[in-house]
Simulated scan of single mutants.
Amino acid sequence: MGREAEAVKYRGRRRWNGSWGKVWWDNELLFEIQKFEAKVTADREDVFISISKDSKIVSLTGELSFTIKSVVNRNINKYLEAWKQGLDPRGTFIGLIDDPDAVDGQKERCSIDNVWFNDLILMSFEKGKVVEKEFTAGFTPEDASFIETIGA
């Protein structure tokens, strides 16, 4: 395919629209999802070679955050009760981008297992505003994988 044909294939309408993103928490669709992010960070240690500073990956850190427009309590009470008993429950999240205008109808899906919460928003509101709750969590990067990816 030539450069001109390639450019036509990737017009502006082909950019992903987050409105088509979906998230499942322990196999339950979060229909009120507003925002979702999962990332892996390389933790590095400095390595010196002569006078130059390089680095070496020594571990990986998984971080997950999401915001919901509150409708139901979800699993918050289950996690709170487990914490109060000294337990550390773990969950599974699956994120999907399925924009119908994506090139060749492709989609991207990622599975993240062994997810733990750093905090639980029990209640939060502001007068005159739709109630939102933002959560932060961690996961082991070895327990994350792409189920589907968008190729060229």
Rank of each mutant, 00 (worst) to 15 (best):
K107A: 09
Y79K: 11
K127S: 10
G138L: 04
I97S: 12
A82Y: 07
E142H: 14
Q106G: 12
D104G: 02
S124C: 06
L96S: 12
I112P: 01
D119Y: 08
T92I: 15
Q106P: 09
V131N: 13
G105I: 05
T92V: 15
T136I: 00
E108K: 02
W116T: 15
P100C: 04
G95Y: 00
K84E: 00
A82R: 07
E142I: 15
C110F: 02
V130M: 13
F135D: 06
I94S: 05
D101K: 14
Y79H: 08
E132C: 13
E142R: 13
P141T: 13
E81S: 06
Y79F: 09
E126C: 04
Q106M: 06
F139H: 00
G105Q: 04
V130D: 06
D113K: 05
E81R: 06
I97K: 10
K78R: 11
K78D: 07
A137D: 03
F125C: 10
E81P: 02
D143L: 11
A137I: 10
E132T: 14
S145M: 11
T136R: 00
F139C: 02
E132H: 13
Y79A: 04
V130Q: 05
D101L: 12
E134H: 08
V103K: 03
N118S: 11
V131W: 14
S111R: 15
M123I: 04
D119T: 09
D143T: 12
K129L: 13
P141M: 09
F135M: 02
D98G: 04
M123Q: 08
V130W: 15
N114Y: 10
T136C: 00
V130I: 10
D99A: 12
T136W: 00
N114F: 09
